[in-house]
């Protein structure tokens, strides 16, 4: 089950995000890591240290690209220069699949640099699915879309978020990067049962899973990526693995980044659920 058309029939285990403060550690100590996820935009530059480091990483590790600015849900078409640079990077990294978010963030050529939520409408399903197909055709690799954390809902919405996700990936025939932390954060903010979400996704389309930490405030929950993974998120993860089978998993840690070993140890906790012999023990 884990190797599927949406992750290029790969069988990746637990990866971690490649972050600047860990460059020296990784290159000098060469720790055993199954794979690294990179933020594509950080390496879509003309030259210099980012690309030099990336090439050194690519010599020794498998890399998967994750983007933050494709905005599949923007009503207007993506920028050509962006797509061309992304394709150059895809060729450089040999990423077996590529992910970005099911959201929007730009309009009329202006960019918010945020992952803004979509109204869950049929029009948005059609527009978003068409964009995903265009990007997938242009890049010639499988694309997986990630569910985002959100803090607002729209009167316009005609379905739930998980119904919307189902419709989009079906219409686009693409994969899902299932972020179980984002499901949890949104469930707190929009008062739904996160388990119902996990139980509703098309398991055979899940290319990859994200786990992360978040921050709970008095009246809302924020996706901060600056903490270890919390228990309710591990429960959603366990259920996702139960449904999807062992799936490529990545821990996101972007702020207050601790040492490489700490981040890696936190990520490897996912093995409790990924290795079938451990599942009963971990769930108990």
């Amino acid at each position: 089950m884990p190797a599927n058309p949406f992750n290029g029939y790969t069988d990746y285990g637990v990866g971690i995000g490649l972050r600047v403060p860990h460059y020296d550690h990784i290159l000098s100590r060469k720790p055993v890591v199954d794979w690294f996820e990179i933020i594509s935009e950080n390496y879509m530059v003309d030259g210099g240290r980012p690309l030099r480091i990336l090439d050194q990483i690519l010599d020794q590790y498998r890399v998967v690209q994750h983007g933050v600015s494709m905005y599949f849900g923007s009503a207007q078409a993506p920028n050509r220069d962006h797509l061309r640079r992304l394709k150059d990077l895809v060729r450089r990294t040999g990423t077996p699949w590529l992910s970005d978010h099911l959201c929007w963030g730009s309009v009329d050529g202006r960019y918010t640099h945020d992952l803004l939520p979509l109204p869950y409408t049929w029009e948005a399903v059609r527009t978003t699915a068409e964009r995903i197909r265009q990007v997938q055709d242009f890049l010639e690799i499988p694309v997986a879309v990630e569910n985002v954390s959100s803090y607002a809902e729209f009167h316009e919405s005609q379905m739930t978020e998980w119904e919307f996700l189902n419709e989009v990936v079906h219409a686009a025939d693409c994969g899902i990067l299932l972020d179980v932390n984002n499901i949890y954060v949104s469930s707190r903010n929009h008062e739904f049962d996160p388990m119902e979400y996990v139980n509703s996704i098309p398991a055979d389309r899940v290319a990859q899973i994200h786990i992360a930490g978040h921050s709970q405030f008095e009246r809302y929950t924020l996706d901060t990526h600056d903490h270890p993974v919390l228990d309710p998120v591990w429960s959603l993860y366990a259920r996702a693995i139960e449904r999807c089978g062992p799936t490529a998993t990545l821990l996101e840690w972007d702020d207050n980044i601790p040492t490489f070993d700490e981040v890696h140890a936190e990520a490897l906790k996912a093995n409790r659920f990924l290795q079938p012999s451990n599942v009963e023990e971990a769930v108990a």
């Binding site: 995000g17 972050r19 600047v20 403060p21 933020i39 935009e41 950080n42 240290r49 980012p50 994750h66 933050v68 978010h101 992952l115 985002v148 954390s149 984002n182 992360a212 924020l222 996706d223 901060t224 990526h225 600056d226 996101e252 972007d254 702020d255």
Partner: peptide
């Protein structure tokens, strides 16, 4: 600062 990094969706202060 050593290098700027784009974060993945996380709120940045």
């Amino acid at each position: 600062p050593e290098e700027k990094a784009v974060t993945s969706g996380a709120a940045q202060l």
